[in-house]
Write a protein that binds this DNA or RNA. Structure first.
Lengths: 302, 302
DNA sequence: GGCTCGTCATAAGCAACCCTTATGACCAGA
DNA sequence: TCTGGTCATAAGGGTTGCTTATGACGAGCC
């Protein structure tokens, strides 16, 4: 992996504390280390980055303009770290569970971690135990009371359950930057897509099922170009030039924003999906499940 | 800062390499360390996380289901790290510049780093030198040929320049989760907003200027509740319950997705802004500037 | 069935790093 | 000028993490 010359998380966190408190000494205390340690950390970070991030004075320390940019990027990085931490905590908590949650892979990967961070802030006592599986298995887990709350993707609500739509995503046909399709005039018709070999997830995945459902009228399909077991692998393969592929808009977002992938317009098929929270009909949501549902509903539906 | 129990970047990068190569030994080689070191790193990560991420066998190593989730979250984290790295590299490059770029803070913070990552992949030889400043200063820098390419925000194109819209954002009125306004029926009218004390950026900022321009008909304004010098500080203050505030949709996105902040509907004002690439009228874009512009245009416009 | 090659884990030695306490230089305000 | 705050430097100690060398284990192949 490339990311070289990146300060470690502790140093970046310290930088944000300095920005907030205006003093290296106070930031050190807040961070639970001695003042010289904090001083050395920042100095090391400046050596690594190659430019100063702080203006020191005898009244405290302020960010340089460059330091302020670094601090903003660091906030992003630490938000991702917090998401990973919250997700990992919920995977770890299989013994002393308070709130067992089952989620489809798309939700577990891309949405739940941020909700868990918020939950941890607003309700620090709640311990979530997360289990990621496909949508059908989520429905089973919830009905069997193996999970208090579930998150599923797909066109229909499983029988016997209440549901609320918490987000939407869309299957996208994407190509690497520079692919001929990026210069194509009109949208690609569904029939042509069905006849094209694409980079796909494995057959049991929600993404693959949704795709084949949306294109059902144009079966049979061309065999997949590649069949990969995670959204990340699909992204990488497409970006590396393997060919066009199908991917959830949630998973594609970073590569689209970075311009490594491009969306191909299509016509003749409905690729929008709802991501739903589900729980057994008749069951009252427990307090903790209610909290998590509210946080999910509060976030934008896209 | 919270993020505790997060493996360091090197360990996460190693995990992705293992996922890609299917072998700890190969991943170690790819990563430039010895095999026992890689083994120990992963073992340490598992100790930290509290669950295994790999299934070892005598034919190689595969991810556990939990490990696959961690790997996906790690991809996010490393993407942020790559963005920081690319941004820092462009700040560092003030001597041996190839492509001097001037950008408004919003673009420099939220969009450019990802474009730079893509640029680094597609054109490894190009060295970008980034200078972040307000939009008026960007226009000056570009006209004076201090920068080959500029990125500005705001309603109008500076005189004497070509421009292409590379993105849009929107000023949002946001409140912390649970604020009374989240339960309000209709949108908040512009006149009421003008009379409300809000958390703001400093007066010279593009965000503040755009806000006051959009609300010009309802001047004078109530004094700010707080006046902070970075978008991150504004976000934190609002999330901590200081009160309603104004913030770019780009800066608000992570907190909205996490449900820590909520958008308030408003009426009677146009808060959409264009973010534009600009260069001097009559000047041909150099090859490198052309590359960067293309990457920016390829990314979704929102 | 035994050989070989690949996997990963363990052990021992060594180097680097980081943190802590103690101290000094410097500046602002009383 | 004195006091209280800032941050940097120095010396010592503990921990971590790396490397090389070796061992255990399983798969595939004669």
């Amino acid at each position: 992996m490339f990311p070289d010359r990146v300060p470690d998380l502790a140093a970046l966190g310290l930088l944000l504390d300095v920005a907030a408190t205006g003093s290296l000494t106070r930031a050190a205390a807040e961070h639970g280390v001695s003042q010289p340690a904090a001083s050395a950390r920042i100095a090391g970070m400046e050596r690594l980055l190659g430019f100063p991030v702080l203006v020191r004075s005898s009244t405290g320390s302020r960010l340089t303009p460059q330091g302020a940019l670094v601090a903003d990027w660091a906030r992003d990085l630490l938000a991702s770290a917090a998401a990973l931490d919250a997700g990992a905590a919920s995977l770890r908590a299989d013994r002393d569970v308070r709130l067992p949650v089952a989620a489809s892979l798309t939700v577990a990967e891309h949405l739940l971690p941020r909700w868990l961070v918020t939950l941890a802030v607003e309700h620090p006592d709640t311990v979530v135990s997360l289990d990621a599986m496909n949508s059908a298995a989520v429905a089973r887990a919830v009905l069997d009371r193996g999970a208090d709350l579930g998150f599923v993707e797909g066109p229909s609500v499983p029988a016997g359950m209440h549901s609320r739509t918490v987000a939407r995503d869309r299957l996208l046909v994407v190509v690497p930057a520079g692919h001929p399709w990026t210069r194509r005039r009109g949208p690609v018709p569904a029939a042509e897509l069905a006849a094209t070999r694409l980079v796909h997830r494995e057959p049991a995945s929600g993404t693959r099922v949704s795709w084949e459902t949306a294109l059902a009228a144009h079966a049979p399909f061309a065999p997949p170009l590649l069949e990969l077991s995670s959204a990340g692998a699909v992204r990488s393969a497409i970006a590396a030039g393997a060919g066009p592929g199908v991917i959830s808009s949630l998973a594609a977002e970073p590569d689209l924003a970075g311009g490594r992938l491009a969306v191909v317009a299509v016509e003749g098929m409905d690729l929008e999906r709802r991501l739903r929270a589900v729980w057994p009909r008749g069951a009252r949501l427990t307090g903790a499940a209610q909290d998590l549902l509210e946080i999910a509903l509060r976030a934008p539906r896209r």
